[in-house]
Design a protein around this nucleic acid. Structure first.
Lengths: 354, 354
DNA sequence: CTGAAAGCGCTTACAG
DNA sequence: CTGAAAGCGCTTACAG
């Protein structure tokens, strides 16, 4: 049967001091007017050791201290069966930094997913509050819940840029805009004048950032008039007929959002047409490099700094927790790494007439 | 500036009832002697809505006794960069079951690894105690720490069988013995009489269980005299010369422990010799099926039920936590799944002379 | 059917 | 330098 855990009072009794003293020593408080004698401190620490005492984080947290618990909340299952690659690299970074900072990680697994996604507020409870602050991840996030979190002044950092109408929120994001701009600029420099932007149906912040990069690249060269509107399309739209049509109307280069499952259909359709990059068209993927399985040749793309984002999110969160009176907002953007490929070359029939 | 979030007392005041009543209603308590009038309940719920009241889970858990935190402790980093496949499936199962049971997961990332592995007891303090109980994983576990954990009566379940000299400990393990016995029996039934057991250098419980299965298969057929002692060898021992020698002394079948990095050298050496299973020898791997990358053909093996082990570990742990007065020991073994291959066939030159 | 009171285990002013 | 006291926000017997 289970022994009751030792309490602070037990330690206090054993050491012959008051609970307050134990608390002060354990929290290493160095306030000007709190000073503990070396002898007392030693006695208390000895008692702590002897009893195997560990502060109850729940009580500590209630009493207004902090509990060294960093929440990790994902809107999808944390360890998804399918896309195991999605969260993993973030978690690697998060764990590394948590270890450095001496925080434990609290995964909110008690939060049942309802119709496929999890909600922070269940009934009336913000479960996240058991942790000092939390790192949020996930694409299926509910803006409504974020808004409420901000209103509740709960400290959190989103991994990935998220925006709310009136309310700025803290995040660590990948710099999709710059990465995309660089690639599109490369295409423009090659002489492409009709670069079509193919995006997935659901538009979110990271998609918008990519599109911004696309626009910026054109604008910087004074080529704004060449910009085509982005096409947000379902994967099933990408057929040989569709791409044929695009090529015929003078499109010489494509940039594809990753993650929207546009990529496999694209290659399939192009193969059906007997078209190949960079001979027949130029191509870049706006996201992580493709595996050999998906692409027949190295496609120009960029790497999202997932681990670094995880690490940085923990750093920012711990900063937030240590300075509770400063504005609770941090927004940071980390650079993506250009990933070379063989898919960008001058267009076969240059329409250049600048 | 934001208002302080509403408390239970605010709701009580607004509804004109006592905090206790609010608590009872919000927790939906149906105890025999607690009954709330429909009108009162409606009034309270309306007040909750109006104020946007959210129960503070920290206070709730302090008052209630339990914190619904399940610890997850790994002796190596939880999200290792290298062998990401090792912990992941366990964690999937653990998360699934934690969600079912309404527990959150506490990852002890604050525990720094010293010379590559983590220690539960740091300066005589058991960090794990911040959680109600914990699930332990990892091959590098220190027996000394486990012993202490048991002595402290801390509730935990090890994923994987672990044994301590005098102290039984709780675990969920894979049934390596049965899985191995089945495979070896298949080889014996095929007519093999010299089956060599090749094991990694470090012997642990899971290795011993496999060897036990190897022995059992022989014994069940009354063939104990055919048993060769297991060879515990380093990967570098597996050279073409070594295997040549084995074949020459009449060995017709090999069973290899997985995880000891014996497998790659084995295939390399056999390829060098120009030998191929099952024509020249029979073969099984005592562990997870090999990827195409490692093995040129499907090798008989078995799948370790990692997810199920994770799930079961959480179940057993929550049982332990709910029945604190029953014996704190659970040992359970889950079956592995036979994974077929093409590597077992009758020996080319049968020495059978039974 | 509902309220007053005690208590969960800690921290933090405030005295001295 | 250390202790007594109040309080964090809830739940749970216990009264009535």
């Amino acid at each position: 049967m289970m022994q009751k855990r030792p309490r602070q009072t037990d330690v206090a009794k054993l050491a012959g001091v008051s609970p307050a003293t134990v608390s002060v020593i354990l929290n290493n408080r160095l306030d000007g007017n709190v000073r503990i004698g070396a002898e007392t401190r030693a006695r208390v620490l000895a008692a702590v050791e002897q009893l195997g005492y560990v502060t109850d984080p729940v009580a500590r947290s209630l009493a207004g201290g902090r509990n060294s618990l960093l929440g990790v909340f994902t809107f999808e299952p944390i360890f998804p069966l399918q896309q195991r690659d999605f969260y993993y690299p973030f978690l690697v970074g998060i764990e590394q930094e948590a270890e450095q900072s001496g925080y434990d990680l609290l995964l909110f697994t008690s939060i049942r997913s309802i119709d496929g996604h999890r909600r922070i507020y269940q009934g009336n409870i913000n479960r996240l509050r058991v942790a000092d602050g939390a790192i949020l991840l996930g694409s299926e996030q509910s803006k409504e819940e974020l808004r409420r979190l901000v209103a509740d002044r709960y400290p959190f950092i989103f991994v990935g840029r998220r925006e709310l109408a009136d309310t700025p929120i803290s995040y660590v994001a990948a710099d999709y805009a710059t990465a995309t701009a660089k690639i599109v600029a490369e295409m423009l420099a090659c002489g492409h004048q009709q670069i079509v932007y193919l995006g997935a149906l659901n538009e979110n912040e990271s998609h918008r950032d990519r599109y911004t990069g696309y626009l910026v690249a054109h604008r910087q060269l004074g080529l704004s008039h060449l910009v085509a509107t982005a096409q947000r399309i379902g994967a099933q739209v990408i057929t040989p007929a569709f791409l044929q049509q695009e090529l015929e109307r003078g499109i010489t280069a494509f940039v594809l959002e990753s993650g929207g499952s546009l990529i496999a259909p694209f290659f399939q359709a192009m193969t059906t047409l007997g078209k190949c990059a960079p001979a027949d068209f130029s191509l870049a993927v706006l996201g992580d490099p493709l595996t050999d399985f998906v692409a027949p040749y190295p496609v120009v793309s960029f790497t999202i700094p997932r681990e670094a984002m995880g690490r940085r999110a923990v750093q920012l969160l711990t900063e937030l927790l240590q300075t509770p009176y400063l504005p609770q907002m941090r927004q940071e953007t980390l650079a993506c790494t250009y990933s070379p490929g063989v898919t960008i070359a001058p267009p076969a029939f240059s329409h250049s007439s600048i």
